[in-house]
Structure formats: C-alpha cells, structure tokens
Amino acid sequence: MEWATDIFSIENRTERSGFVRRIWRARSVEIPSFISVAVPTWQIVFIQSANGSKSVVARGPETLATRVNIPKDAEFLGIQFELGAFLPDNTVGRLVDNAESLSADSDHSFWLNDTKFEIPTFENAEVLVDHLIRSGGLVRDTVVEQTLQRRPVSLSDRSIQRRFINSTGLTYGAVRQMERAEHAASLLRNGVSILDVVDGQGYSDQAHLTRSLKRYLGTAPGRIAKADR
C-alpha cells in the first residue's frame, strides 16, 4: 500500500490532556509521494528541511484521499488533535481539505493567534498544548465526544449538528463515514472477506464499499485485502 503508515517509520506517543489524539514524528523516505487518507481531525505539523530551515503548517481535516509529495531529507513532527478540540479564534472549517502556513521565525519559534510560541520537540510538545489550554487558545466541545459515543445529549439534533460543525468543520455523518471506511479497511487487512465486510458494516453492496474506500482511503477493497497476503 502507499499509505503513510506503510511507507514511513512513524513514532507515535499519547498525551495526557485529552485534547490530543497523538504526537508523532517521522523522516522523509526515498519515495516521491504517498496517499494521504481522509481523516476527520486536524493537526499542526512542524517540518525541518535538510538546510535547517523550519516551516509550520496547520492541516486538515481531510474528506478525500489525496496524493501528497514527500519533501526530500526532511524531518516531521506532528500534533494531531482530538475530535472536538479546536482554536476558538480560528474556524476549523477553513482547514477542511486545506493547509495553512503559520509564520515561523529563524529563532525556532512560530506565531499562532498573534502569540509567539517556541517550536516544540517530540519530547516536550505538551508544553505547547498546555499553554494553549491554559490561555483558552485551545478548547474542546464535549458534545462531540458524547455524540460519537452515542451518549445522551440534552440538545436538539440541529443544535448537536451545529456544535459538531463548529468544532470539527464536519458533519456527524461525514465523520461516521470516514470511521466506517477505516474500520472496513482494518477488517480486510485482517482477513475478513469483502462480502462479509459489506454485510457487517452496513454497505448496500460491494460497489458501495468500493466507492467509499476509494474516496476515503484512495484504493479499492481488493487491493487492501491482497496487501497483507
């Protein structure tokens, strides 16, 4: 496969605040591009090139699988935020299927919400996250988590949808579709037959499954099933 998880050697770790899904780092590989799969979350990525220059990008959520070029001789550090965690001063919807460059200075710092921060390392990324949380620059809407876990929420469906879009940039249905495609791919890679995945995951037929996986993961179910054989 040509997914990042199959191409890069990615080191992941968790973070205690509940606002962050994972902190990760990786290096460039001798492959020109990879398939970036659809993800419902957004992240900040710090990139250091071979000449030492640094850039900072806020990226995602992504509603389609896309092919992304890999910079040569670069190191990457990412902070991927949990669903429902967002920056109140920035519209998450603006990042959907998009990436925005954040100003980076030569003294290993960058600007976010008119505030200057030190570019973190893999080991101390919590310092940045903690600062954002304490200052109110990063908040989390618990309605999103409750809705995804199908726990009761004392709001109308319209209010829930509005809160969902405000904090994730996506509808509840869009997030569920991405999660279903990811789970279907996991089943296929673990030997579950295509027809059983169709039946078990609520797809109307094999063509429906194929369209979903091509849209969100950039490949067909048959290729996923064959990849681990």
Rank of each mutant, 00 (worst) to 15 (best):
I79V: 15
L102C: 11
R16F: 10
P32V: 08
N51D: 15
S49Y: 15
E126W: 09
V144T: 03
S36C: 09
Q80I: 12
G93W: 07
W24L: 10
R67S: 13
A26S: 10
A58C: 08
P61C: 10
K72S: 14
K54P: 05
V45D: 09
R140A: 05
I47F: 00
D107Y: 02
S53G: 10
D73S: 14
S55W: 03
S109F: 08
N69F: 12
T147E: 09
V57H: 06
Q43I: 05
V68P: 01
L102V: 05
V127K: 13
E123D: 12
N51F: 05
I23M: 03
K54T: 05
R140D: 01
F81L: 13
L112R: 00
H131Y: 06
A26H: 04
R94M: 11
H108Y: 07
N51L: 03
L83R: 09
F117K: 00
V37Q: 12
L132S: 01
N113M: 14
A125Y: 07
L128A: 04
I44M: 08
F19Y: 15
W42C: 05
T41M: 13
Q48P: 01
I119M: 01
F117A: 00
T115Y: 08
D130G: 01
G84I: 04
G136S: 00
Q146V: 03
W24M: 03
F81V: 06
V29K: 12
A50W: 04
L77S: 02
D114A: 11
T63F: 10
I23D: 02
V56N: 00
T121P: 00
S109R: 03
N124T: 04
L102E: 08
T63W: 11
E15R: 07
E123S: 13
K72T: 12
P40H: 07
V68C: 08
V143D: 07
S101V: 14
V39M: 14
V143H: 01
W111Y: 12
F34Y: 15
G18M: 07
L64V: 14
R150L: 11
G84R: 09
E100L: 14
V56Q: 02
G137Y: 00
I44S: 05
N90S: 11
R27M: 12
K54M: 11
D89E: 15
S106R: 13
E100Q: 14
